[in-house]
């Protein structure tokens, strides 16, 4: 039986889709058969970040409504073996996601895949609730910023009270923090919350810290999950996080300012 993971945050624009694409790719690179599902009905974007936007024919909502078979909607990644994308609809709204429909598709996927990664939309309404309802594990994507931290706490509350596991009194959804867009220079100047501050407030285990990085935009420009940019610090940080998720003990990196030479300091350049 495959494991269901939700990438969630409450707040919008913190890096859920970037992280879903990177994480799904990382799990597939490690040999696990992985599917990543876009739950952001009406605002399809995972396809662009994964670079498969021109291959979308049927979507998640078509499958829920019985208008297409699951196999017809699943897109096999061109670069990586074992990686599949289930895009969402651009034309319907979030009401298209019924609990029964979502459950049926997830059950079907769980027969075939090791990991089912759900990319949640922002907010705490239907789309977000559906993406987390069936989860076994939640990755909470947070930026070191007050509103993001507060919204993450609210989502943790929702996971603990309104997920299937909570409602049925099963083992709770396990939770890990992925702190993204971290800028060690600003942290050092006292302008940004430290990792430890966020951990102290949210009180969940740390999966990884992804630094603020120009590589993320470059990668999304060309439809490549940033984890495939092996030279970038963000890519390496995602690779480490995937290893930790799989139970490996990997030391955290990119959490303190890089020593800059005089030259790059004069130019004011950052990695």
């Amino acid at each position: 039986m495959g494991k269901i993971i939700v990438m969630t945050s409450g707040k919008g624009g913190v890096g859920k889709t970037t992280s879903s694409a990177a994480f799904a790719t990382g799990l597939a690179l490690r040999g696990f058969k992985t599917v990543v599902i876009d739950f952001d009905v009406g605002l399809r974007n995972l396809d662009l970040v994964m670079g498969c936007e021109r291959r979308v024919v049927f979507d998640f909502v078509n499958v829920i409504n019985g208008e297409a078979k699951l196999n017809q909607a699943l897109i096999k990644d061109k670069r990586i073996e074992n990686l599949y994308i289930l895009p969402t609809s651009q034309t319907r709204d979030k009401d298209a996601l019924t609990k029964e429909g979502v459950e049926r598709i997830l059950n079907e996927l769980a027969q075939e895949f090791d990991y089912i990664l759900c990319d949640s939309p922002a907010g705490i309404e239907r789309g977000a609730l559906m993406s987390l309802y069936f989860a076994d594990h939640a990755i909470i994507v947070t930026n070191p910023e007050v509103s993001s931290v507060r919204d993450s706490d609210r989502i943790l509350g929702v996971l603990n009270s309104r997920s299937r596991r909570a409602e049925q009194g099963l083992e709770p959804v396990t939770q890990q923090l992925l702190l993204t867009r971290y800028d060690p220079d600003r942290v050092e100047r006292g302008e940004m919350l430290k990792v430890d501050d966020v951990l102290e407030i949210l009180a969940i285990p740390l999966l990884g810290v992804i630094p603020e990085s120009q590589a993320v935009l470059r990668a999304s420009n060309v439809g490549m999950p940033v984890i495939l940019d092996e030279a970038s610090n963000a890519g390496q940080a995602y690779t480490d996080a995937v290893a930790r998720f799989l139970g490996e003990d990997v030391e955290h990196r990119f959490m303190s300012p890089q020593k800059k030479g005089l030259f790059s300091r004069l130019l004011g350049r950052s990695a």
Binding site: E145, V146, V187, R189, G190, E191, L193, D197
Partner: peptide, 12 residues
């Protein structure tokens, strides 16, 4: 006072 310190206190 570092703004990050204030952020943490307000959040708590």
């Amino acid at each position: 006072r570092a703004t990050a310190v204030q952020a943490k206190e307000r959040l708590q």
